[in-house]
Amino acid sequence: MRLLSAAAALCLAAVLGPAPALALGCETLDFDGQGYTVCRVDMERDDLRLFLEAPDGRPWGQFGRLDAALEGEGRRLSFAMNAGMYHADRAPVGLYIQDGEEIAPLVAGAGPGNFGLVPNGVFCIAGDRARVIETEAYRADPPACRHATQSGPMLVIDGELHPRFLPDSTSRYVRNGVGTFAGGGEAIFAISHRPVTFHEFGRLFRDGLGVDQALFLDGSVSKLHAPALNRSDFGRTMGPIIGVAAPAEGAGE
């Protein structure tokens, strides 16, 4: 059965009314005149992982392919997003660590495109904690990340918006990103329903969600898998994916 696109899911939600909340906490909300879907991951309870290549060596590419593979583990993909920028071969642009193995190195310094709009940063999962760390801070004192992905720009840095964001910018894309708090016990992912500016998206994380640090993941390919909201985006093949592998219904922990 073909998965619902983002547009189809939004239309369905309008007809059916609010969807039941996910255990990990996905919801739609409005902030400053823009609509977003926000998913909160409890790092002590939820099994948040990064995924890149299937056993055949090809990128997972689509949420449905990864979800089907998790069935073999007695698990399901209860939430997922694209997890940062990638090259034409789907290889990560910057640092990428999966299950403790560094697959791609940290990239420091300014460069072209959004990734090089410094300061950029790293999303790190270490034990049952998650942190967004500015790249130079990460390079100075790298933590032992079990999973990590680098992207850019930072959206919120120590409670402040990225200094290059302009309130009157005309650059608008559907964007997705992740934010964390000082304690690291929760990661908050968000994706816009319509094209937004960096300034608008950063303000969602700083003023709407109140996070200390937030990182932009992408704006050319921004996708969400949230089955409890009747949504699973498809289309262009993705590189890194971040998601929660939850026990399948009827399966034990």
Rank of each mutant, 00 (worst) to 15 (best):
L166A: 12
P167V: 00
T135G: 08
A23M: 02
D158F: 00
R146E: 14
D233V: 10
A182E: 15
D47V: 05
R164E: 13
C145T: 13
F181P: 12
A148Y: 04
P119C: 09
N176F: 03
A88C: 07
P92R: 07
G72A: 10
A104W: 06
A248D: 00
L215V: 10
G116Y: 02
C145P: 09
A182K: 08
T135D: 11
F51M: 09
L215Q: 12
L66I: 11
A68Y: 07
L4R: 15
C124E: 01
E249N: 03
P167A: 02
A68W: 10
D47L: 09
E253I: 10
H193Q: 09
A108W: 01
V156P: 04
L3Q: 13
I191S: 01
F79N: 04
G113N: 08
L10G: 11
E253H: 06
L22W: 11
P18N: 09
H199Q: 02
Q98G: 08
A251I: 01
L50W: 01
L77W: 05
A88F: 13
V211Y: 08
Y96D: 14
N120E: 01
G116F: 04
D32Y: 01
V174K: 14
T28H: 15
E200R: 15
E44Y: 02
I241C: 08
G235E: 14
R129C: 05
P142E: 06
R40E: 11
Q34S: 11
E200K: 14
P227R: 06
A226E: 04
T37I: 06
R172E: 13
A21I: 04
A68H: 05
D141Q: 14
A7V: 15
A104T: 14
R49Y: 00
P112D: 07
T237S: 14
G109W: 02
F201V: 07
P163D: 04
V211Q: 12
G111E: 03
I157D: 11
Y173A: 07
V178T: 05
H199R: 03
A108I: 12
A144H: 02
A108V: 15
P153G: 01
D218I: 04
P142Y: 09
L50S: 00
A54D: 06
A9Y: 01
I103M: 11
R49N: 04
R231E: 13
E253A: 14
A83K: 10
L3S: 08
P195S: 13
S222E: 09
P20Q: 14
W60C: 07
G202T: 06
G64F: 15
D207V: 03
V41M: 03
D212P: 08
D212R: 07
A130K: 11
S169Y: 00
D42P: 02
A54Q: 13
E27N: 03
